[in-house]
Amino acid sequence: MLKVDAIDSYYGDSQVLSGISFEVGEKEIVAIVGNNGAGKTTILKSVVGLVHPRRGSILFKGISIEHLPAHKISEMRVSLVPEGRCVFPLMTVLENLELGSHIPSARKQRKTNLEKVFAYFPVLASIKMRAAGKLSGGEQQMLALARGLMSDPELLILDEPSLGLAPIVVGEIFEIILSIHRQGKTILLVEQNTNIALSISDRAYVLSEGRITMQGKGQSLLHDDRVRKAYLGL
């Protein structure tokens, strides 16, 4: 579904990614793990068009998208749930969700999609008139996830959904992510919480200083000594 081929991305003159290649297949859940500042977020930004790679190509369902502006890529039903949640703080939960279905194809389905996400996140239904900025971290993460689902995306991209959450809430969130995946969504997941990421993913890539250093099945990486040393602290 998504095929990233040898992309180099920069912020200004400083190169952050070099020769990144990876793939996400239909209905897969693929993880990218790596340390702080490795460039995980930059990969995702490159995919959704917030950063344009200088070299390399990105194909989504066979169409090259590396030159498209972000809103065009969203319209192709690629949905990124950004790092740090980035809910619209002064808008209500409901308004945030409505904006999640801003793209024309989703706007028609707004009602049914709303029902669907409220089924995943019943909490949100009970606080839908509250300002998003006033929610707790866990609620905000749920809102961000729900908003990302409102466009009924073909590819759902998650950037560190566990960031800054209490362990119990992390568990809850990943339950939901798994159940979303079981419903047939393709997911690309970025995490610093390597343990969880590797244990739930079909395949995973290890990123270090802007390069992919390892790849393989989630479970096998989880048991790889190097990974255990470097990322799991074992």
Partner: peptide, 24 residues
């Protein structure tokens, strides 16, 4: 209105607004 929400979204977080498919 949708346009109004779009304007508010862009004013609160232009980058995230683009992720919603908003043409800023």
């Amino acid at each position: 209105t949708e346009t109004g929400k779009v304007l508010r979204a862009v004013s609160q977080d232009p980058q995230t607004a683009q992720l919603m498919g908003i043409d800023i």
